[in-house]
Computed example of a mutant assay.
Amino acid sequence: MLAGRGWPDWLVWPALAFNLAAGLTLVLGVAVRPVALLLALYCAVTSLFHYIPADPWRISIFVKNRAIAGGCLVLAAHGAGRYALRP
């Protein structure tokens, strides 16, 4: 997908590292608000790769990514909560 949009293929590795690190920080409750905000932005941008109205499968992925971005915005607004695992 990256190559199809003119982006270099190697960007998949930093994206993978960001997803892993961001997921771990959210689970551990470390810097939840800024990381959730970054993840919301990331999901909103990556959803644009799937915006192909003629393809129902790609639109479902587009909507899923937008929903995850919305959930991350809620997490950014409210923080980790009392059940967060904290270091």
Rank of each mutant, 00 (worst) to 15 (best):
A84R: 02
L11S: 07
W57H: 11
D9Q: 08
L41F: 15
V63N: 09
P8W: 07
A54N: 10
T46V: 07
G81Y: 07
A40T: 12
H78E: 14
P14G: 06
G6Y: 02
V12D: 11
W13M: 13
W57I: 11
G79T: 04
W10P: 08
A21R: 12
V63K: 13
R5Q: 08
L2G: 00
L37A: 15
Y83M: 11
A31M: 15
H78S: 12
K64Y: 12
A76H: 00
P53K: 07
P8L: 05
A54W: 13
G79Y: 03
L20F: 15
N65S: 13
L37G: 12
R82V: 02
A44V: 05
A44T: 13
G81T: 00
Y83K: 10
A22W: 09
V35P: 02
R82G: 06
G23S: 12
G29A: 04
L39K: 06
T25C: 15
W57M: 13
A22P: 03
L16R: 13
W7M: 14
N19R: 14
G23P: 04
A40E: 04
G81P: 06
G29T: 00
A80N: 03
P34V: 08
L2Q: 03
L73I: 07
L24R: 09
A76E: 02
L75A: 10
W7P: 00
L73D: 00
S60F: 09
L37T: 07
G71A: 13
A3D: 01
G23I: 06
L28W: 08
